[in-house]
Design a protein around this nucleic acid. Sequence first.
DNA 1: ATGGTAGGGGGCCTA
Length: 258
Amino acid sequence: MKLASFNINGVKARAEVLGRWLDEAQPDVAVLQEIKSVDENFPRDLIESRGYQLETHGQKGFNGVAILSKLPLSDVRRGLPGDDSDEQARWIEAVVGDTGLRVCGLYLPNGNPTPGPKYDYKLAWMARMQARVEALLAEEVPVAFGGDYNVIPQPMDAARPDAWREDALFLPQTRAAFRRLERLGLYDALRLLRPGPGEYSFWDYQAGARQRNDGIRIDHWLLTPQAADLLQDCWIETKPRDWEKPSDHTPIWVELAA
DNA sequence: ATGGTAGGGGGCCTA
């Protein structure tokens, strides 16, 4: 089974790219971030006409996540637990078919500017995610956490790490919080299979970042041990970043024996 | 040090 995570930066602006990508790449499951749409206005036909079940968790203007799957989804849950006052749509999860695999799609807060309330929210959100991960790890089942983490884990994950030293995506506290997630017992799928530098999932629209390959790796799949046991491959698909009217992110894939 | 670009919504904010 092939699963992809793709921050599409606006589902309506990205209809052409998204349709082409689904046709060519044929994910079994995909998690989308930054749909930037309320659920009622999501172009469902774009997804459903291609044979996918679609579950959305949108909000007006910003954020918003979705899961689509060729196998039926069950136990769909929207929103990251731990703060009833949090209205930002950044988390959705579901169980895929009868595989026993749970997929969580997440859009972790950017956190800039720092310091300030947005960075505080990012760190608090990461602490809440840790609690959800702990609960799922205790079940000892395969779970794949895919999404835009807005975390550059290591210097090798940026073409120019020095340019990000003061950024919320790369501050020591951010990287430590990401390591805490890993230390609970999760595996960074890409790093299991591709230990070297030069693996990027985001290039800014500005200043010719794509042309200069001035990228960062901030989209990740983290796996519970039971999911990592099923891991067959993991890769970043760079082509969609060079299509007409692209997202500033590109898809990251895991292939699981599920 | 600055500004460069993009999407959404309806007039600046987020990234």
